[in-house]
């Protein structure tokens, strides 16, 4: 599936590594091991270097994501507006720690350094939806909205 990505880039060009990895992650939601090997062959770098880059940047992940990704902003403005408590509450509600995925693969909880929407702090995003000025009380409702099973679109 990811081989199509390679068509958009010149082979053996080391500078495209990050962009290729981003595209691979876009397809799978994470970086599978065999894909890393193929990317390494494509850009002409040893796998260790590719792994080095993949683990350096926060965006890349080596484990699969859940169905919904919750990102809790931990920027300064969010921090002073109680985002630590919001994170704690989501963690208790889902029974996972930040960076983990729930056992039913419904939710992945992540923290992000700053989403850049400080004016409406504290902010969380679920998939591509933003929730600003989140109060602890709203969390169960937000989670509920996404835990109802989605209709299968084939």
């Amino acid at each position: 599936m990811h081989k199509k990505i390679f068509e958009n880039y010149p082979p053996k060009d080391k500078s495209v590594l990050i962009a290729v990895l981003q595209d691979v992650q876009h397809i799978y939601g994470y970086l599978p091991e065999n894909a890393l090997q193929e990317v390494a062959d494509f850009v002409g770098l040893p796998l260790s270097r590719v792994y080095g880059v993949a683990t350096f940047y926060n965006q890349f992940r080596l484990t699969p994501l859940g169905e919904n990704v919750i990102r809790v902003c931990r920027g300064t403005a969010c921090h002073v507006s109680n985002s630590a408590n919001i994170l704690f509450n989501i963690e208790t509600a889902l029974n996972v720690k930040a960076g983990q995925t729930t056992r039913d693969k419904k939710f992945t909880l992540e923290t992000v350094a700053c989403i850049g929407a400080c004016s409406i702090a504290p902010v969380i995003t679920v998939n591509d939806d933003y929730f600003g000025k989140v109060a602890v009380k709203e969390i169960p409702n937000i989670l509920k909205k996404y835990s109802t099973p989605k209709k299968q679109i084939i």
Binding site: G75, T76, A77, C114, G116, A117, S119
Partner: peptide, 11 residues
């Protein structure tokens, strides 16, 4: 690459 938490003018 506006990484400073609390800054969003570049965005």
């Amino acid at each position: 690459d506006e990484g400073d938490p609390g800054a969003f003018m570049d965005r």
